[in-house]
Amino acid sequence: MTSYADVAQSVISGDEDLVKEQVNSLLAAGESPLKIIDEGLIAGMNVVGVRFKAGDMYVPEVLMSARSMSTGVEIVKPLIAVADMKVKVKVVLGTVKGDLHDIGKNLVRIMMESSGLEVIDVGIDISPEKFMDAIREHNPDVLAMSALLTTTMANMKSTIDVLVEEGLRDKVKVIVGGAPVSQEFADTIGADGFAADAASASDLCKALVAK
């Protein structure tokens, strides 16, 4: 008999096929879809998060775990009422204008989703106007901007300037990240937070929203 702990262990191992098999087995046995998510899939991912922060797991392993968790969630999701899905923090995420790099942004998205955040990934080369459109449409708690280049990071400030001009600055927390970005830069441009890496971005969002 498959247990929730088995599902959690398969998520930790990043064994997508086994997760699929075990989740289907639990559903066939009449187990609660929400419990499969909370006590199996997310429980496993929570262990992954702790091990990653401790330096005991590496990014490729975390991604395999995240992919396994997503596969499990996709199986049980149709069986859960929308009202029961608990989303605590909503984030609009994108790479700023002029910057086509998406690896770091995608890692942030995966890490955030694995931590239970809802992420609207608006993509790369996003102008301030496009960010404004996304904020108006999705009403997020956090705007997360990424830049890899020193030549494009100035567009983070341009976006914040437009947020102020459009009267949206108080409605959303702003976090920034990417290779050349620092806490000092974040402070200079008026962002609410700086995430040094993909793993810390989720915690930063939660901490800012909890304030």
Partner: peptide, 9 residues
């Protein structure tokens, strides 16, 4: 190279 622990370049 991306560092696979910290994700930094």
């Amino acid at each position: 190279e991306m560092d696979m622990l910290t994700t930094v370049t």
